[in-house]
Amino acid sequence: MLIPVMLGVTFLVYFIISLTPGDAAAMILGNGATEESIKELREEMGFNDPTIVQYANYMKDLLTGDMGTSYSTGKSVAGEIGQRFPNTFKLTFSAIFIAILISIPIGVISATKQYSIFDNAGMIFALIGISMPSFWTGLMLIIAFSLNLGWFPSSGMDGIRSLILPAFTLAIASTASITRTTRSSMLEVVRQDYINTAKAKGVSKKDVIRKHALRNALIPAVTVIGLEFGILLGGAVLTETVFSWPGIGRLMVESIQRKDTPMVLGCVIVFAVAFSVVNLIVDILYAYIDPRIKANYN
């Protein structure tokens, strides 16, 4: 399933990017280029071929790890992305880790104490959390913790201290939505008959939640965590821009501004592949949590 989707994704992205107006050959050669040399390069790079042929060539190269060369720096796209990728990985995984760590306990407690002050406060914060744009949250955190308190650096990547603000910025929206999902699926689960069966055989309140409810409630939560990851990758573009974090997101924005098409294409494809891989992991995780799904695979 992954492979046809990936083929589709790369084609779609390639097609969209190929809509970019302007002459790539002229771009590469810069201002001083002659009409003649532009024409030559166009021929050489295959820009005159139909999109589908260009795509096929691109894919052929992609399979060997070649994503083309940057129009603006002349460096290898794959090399540049490979250099930046660990940084984006670090940022997004810290963020999803923070989000899961905070959201699941809060979601569970909120559900078990529905309508309590804790629950109401938690839900208000969660709703505000999903309504805050990450780039603004980032700016606010910079103003508070970096410019005023001086606890963390406001930009760049220099050790764990510089990771904290961007990771939290990126984590907020995901934390909020995973909390909401955990709470509502928990509320749904505790109404199920099997929870009554568990109570009726004398299982303590704590164990009813821990052993019987939580695992069932995690099933929808895991789905949302997978989807959130996609949103997180999108958010990384903004967060990396705000914090000057040297990841793929910032590379992509810079490349768009420089009209560096191969670089933009490479970034989007890497993001899409990363998202698909995460969804694959989520599917596998499912089978561990839910025996009904495992049965379907066998």
Binding site: N196, A200, P291
Partner: peptide, 20 residues
């Protein structure tokens, strides 16, 4: 519960925990 009194619920399709 379980020791002195036990209860069987109406719908066996939903009375068992699906993940245990």
């Amino acid at each position: 519960r379980g020791e002195v009194v036990s209860m069987i619920f109406q719908d066996p399709m939903t009375a068992l925990n699906p993940v245990i």
